[in-house]
Design a protein around this nucleic acid. Sequence first.
DNA 1: GTGGTCTAGACCACA
DNA 2: GTGGTCTAGACCACG
Lengths: 133, 133, 133, 133
Amino acid sequence: MIIRIDPTAAEPLFEQVVFAVKTAVARGTAKAGDRLPSVRELARELAINPNTVVRAYEALERDGVIVRRQGAGCFLTGRGSDLAGSERRKQLQDLMRRTVTEAFHLGFQPEDLRKALDQNLDQVQFPEPRSQS
Amino acid sequence: MIIRIDPTAAEPLFEQVVFAVKTAVARGTAKAGDRLPSVRELARELAINPNTVVRAYEALERDGVIVRRQGAGCFLTGRGSDLAGSERRKQLQDLMRRTVTEAFHLGFQPEDLRKALDQNLDQVQFPEPRSQS
Amino acid sequence: MIIRIDPTAAEPLFEQVVFAVKTAVARGTAKAGDRLPSVRELARELAINPNTVVRAYEALERDGVIVRRQGAGCFLTGRGSDLAGSERRKQLQDLMRRTVTEAFHLGFQPEDLRKALDQNLDQVQFPEPRSQS
Amino acid sequence: MIIRIDPTAAEPLFEQVVFAVKTAVARGTAKAGDRLPSVRELARELAINPNTVVRAYEALERDGVIVRRQGAGCFLTGRGSDLAGSERRKQLQDLMRRTVTEAFHLGFQPEDLRKALDQNLDQVQFPEPRSQS
DNA sequence: GTGGTCTAGACCACA
DNA sequence: GTGGTCTAGACCACG
């Protein structure tokens, strides 16, 4: 898995790592069961503090994206959010509401948003929808 | 203008205020020229420190949403963003990429995102697209 | 980077800091990637309150001159302004109109202004104009 | 003399009035000896508080642009700054240094500044230069 | 009355 | 250690 971060960006480094891993999973670059680089290894690669990597992995485990197995390393789970349905729904709403509001203030029109959404959807490998449920 | 915040939320108080104002503008609840509550007034209403409101209003002015006029008050501008086209474009991409990635990890499908987008677009009063100018 | 301020001047302290940093960048005394003094350090040096430095750094970040990175420090970007062309143009006009008008009332002649402009241009390290890109 | 102000601008109203008068003088729209509108009259015209006009006229008198004669009104002087030579010089330098520095950070090149200066000089009616002195 | 600036001092998040 | 947020309270400038 290739993880790249921009040390000059305003976003905290550990969040950049978290987002990079999530992006890799979403794009299909990494799959369930894959092993993440060790904390020390990734810290060296990215030239950042190991504590920063630890914090990123903690956040990823909290979000259910990885599991940390003592001594063995960190592994990608089959993306599973263990949130209740109502909470999941609310999170999507919050994300989209924020995006739409900010885009409005940037002067975009509905069509711009729909186009941007479709472009980003194209880059993500969604799983086969489970017929019902 | 009604502004509500949640003091228990993780999001900083001043950012909650910023977003509340932006939402009000986007929904058409507040229009260009409208005056915002005074710093002291809003601070009292929300039971927060006046300086926190000041920071929120500063951020809103930075984003071109309001102007602050000493002695007179703070007013909605109605102007859009002053950013260059390339920067605007990049910001929309970042917003949408983040939303799509997070939604993927929450287990949503493309259709869920399209539906959520449309629902949120319905609540926003977009300006008439200017054909020329 | 040497930053000096005059506590007796009418100009707000944080604006003096902002201008001092911008001047250092313009003169080539400080370059992209350079780290600014930490908030506490500069506050101690200038014998002002840390919050005043924070306000200055916030303004510099708003203007795209620096990025502030939590836990790491503040760094010069080297990026230019993100403003749209029309807004950039307007700001230059406003600056120059103000200068010409005030100089007129100070009794200067056009030649004095041209000379003053050239003298100041000499002290600034302008980037190579990019022919393409 | 036509004086117009923009109540939505960030610049304080009284400063806008001051600058409008100075601009009128510089452009030759108003000449030495001309009488300014009375405080009440201008306040009514601009729909602003009379105290704001009073403050503007005080500032103009302080700058030597007008004289206020009890009972008779305010009159334009033949633009005369009573500053010492060194102080005059310093003020021009400060104005130009500020303009050049800000323009640099807006991404302009020396040629842009020279052009902007010449454009603004063209609109100002400079007096015949006194041969020596 | 309004916002603008500054100080003082606290606690938290990031590297 | 760094910056980020929040509180408390002062005094000044503008309308």
